[in-house]
C-alpha cells in the first residue's frame, strides 16, 4: 500500500468540548489505485485528507506513506514526502493566490524543493501547463483572468509539477459546471495514466465517484461505514446509508417519489450512541441503539459496519 491509515483520529476543540471529526478511520490506497471517498458535509472527509497530508494534527492513530509514519517525522524529514503527496482543492477561486502569475505559482514548488536551474524549471512549467491543456501564454497571467475550469487546470498543474505519487482530490469538480466537469475528470484520468498516479478522490457526488474510482469508501460522521471494490458497491450496497445515498441521487426512473432518508444530518459535535446512523436508519433495532457495529468483511473485498447487513 502506498498510503495507509490505522485507526486515525482527528479532534477539534470547540466551545462544547472535543469534536471527533475523524473517529477511527483505517484505509489504504494502493499504488496506481484510485480510491473514492464518499460522504456528506460534516462526515470528516476533508479533515481526513488534511490529516493524511499532516496539514492538521493527528490526535491518535497512524498515517503511513510508503511505509513511513507521516505523523512522527520531523519537518525536515517530511519535506521529501511532501513532494510525493499532493492535493487538489474544490474551490478554483480560493486555491490560487490572486497576487501571483501562473508561472510564479507553478515555479515556486520547484524552487522550494531545489529542483532544476532556471531553464530546467521553465521547461518543466511549460511542459505541465501543456499537459493540463493550457497554452504557455497562460503563464504570464493572473488567476482572475481564467474561468473556473481553467483555474482548476492550474490547480492540478501545481499539484503535479513535483511529480507526486499520490494526489488527494478534495471535491475537485464540485464547483464546476457540468460541461466543464467532464473535461476535468478526463484530464485527471489522463494524468493518472500518464504519470502513474494514485488518487484518493473525495466527493459527495456518487456518479463522479463511480466514474473515477477502483474502490469506494463510504464515510458517515467520522467513520468508514462501507468499503467495496469495483461495481460491487453499486450493484449490492450493504449499508443502509449507502443505499439511501444512492436513492437520493435524482433519477428520472423515480418520478416524484419521496426520498428514502428522513431526518437531518446529525452534527459531529453530537454523535448518537450505538450505531451512529441509527436515528435515521429504516432498519434500526434495539441493538443499534446500544452497540456500535464492528466493521467486518461480509463478502470478498466488501466490508460494512452494520448489524443488519446480512438481512
Amino acid at each position: 500500500m502506498l498510503l495507509e491509515t490505522h485507526d486515525l483520529h482527528v479532534r477539534f476543540s470547540t466551545q462544547n468540548g472535543a469534536l471527533h471529526a475523524v473517529d477511527g478511520v483505517s484505509l489504504g490506497v494502493g499504488r496506481g489505485e484510485s480510491v473514492g471517498l464518499v460522504g456528506e458535509s460534516g462526515c470528516g472527509k476533508s479533515t481526513l485528507a488534511k490529516a493524511v497530508l499532516r496539514l492538521l494534527p493527528v490526535a491518535a492513530g497512524r498515517v503511513l506513506f510508503d511505509g513511513q509514519d507521516v505523523g512522527t517525522l520531523s519537518a525536515r524529514d517530511l519535506q521529501p514526502l511532501r513532494r510525493r503527496m499532493q492535493i487538489v482543492f474544490q474551490d478554483p477561486f480560493g486555491s490560487l493566490n490572486p497576487r501571483h502569475t501562473v508561472e510564479s505559482i507553478l515555479t515556486a514548488p520547484l524552487v522550494v524543493h531545489g529542483l532544476g536551474d532556471r531553464q530546467e524549471r521553465r521547461r518543466r512549467v511549460e511542459e505541465i501547463v501543456g499537459q493540463v491543456g493550457l497554452s504557455s501564454s497562460a503563464l504570464s497571467r493572473y488567476p482572475h483572468e481564467f474561468s473556473g475550469g481553467q483555474r482548476q487546470r492550474i490547480g492540478i498543474a501545481r499539484a503535479l509539477i513535483l511529480k507526486p505519487d499520490l494526489v488527494i482530490c478534495d471535491e475537485p469538480v464540485s464547483a464546476l459546471d457540468l460541461s466543464i466537469q467532464a473535461q476535468i475528470l478526463n484530464l485527471l484520468v489522463g494524468m493518472k495514466r500518464a504519470l502513474g498516479l494514485s488518487y484518493l478522490f473525495i466527493s459527495h457526488d456518487l456518479s463522479v465517484v463511480r466514474f473515477i474510482s477502483d474502490r469506494v469508501l463510504v464515510m458517515y460522521l467520522g467513520r468508514i461505514v462501507e468499503s467495496a471494490a469495483g461495481d460491487d458497491l453499486w450493484q449490492a450496497p450493504l449499508h443502509p446509508y449507502t443505499r439511501a445515498l444512492m436513492q437520493a441521487v435524482p433519477d428520472p426512473a423515480r418520478r416524484r417519489q419521496a426520498p428514502a432518508l428522513s431526518g437531518d444530518l446529525p452534527s459531529p459535535e453530537n454523535v448518537p450512541p450505538g450505531c451512529r446512523f441509527h436515528p435515521r436508519c429504516p432498519l434500526a433495532t434495539e441493538i443499534c441503539r446500544r452497540q456500535d457495529p464492528a466493521f467486518r468483511e461480509l463478502r470478498p473485498q466488501h466490508a460494512v459496519a452494520c448489524h443488519h447487513a446480512e438481512a
Binding site: L78, F89, A108, R158
Partner: peptide, 17 residues
C-alpha cells in the same frame, strides 16, 4: 485558512516564504 495557503503548506513551503 485560504486554500492557497493550505496548498503552499502541502507543497512544503517554509513559514517565512
Amino acid at each position: 485558512e485560504r486554500d492557497f495557503v493550505t496548498a503552499a503548506r502541502a507543497l512544503g513551503f517554509g513559514h517565512i516564504r
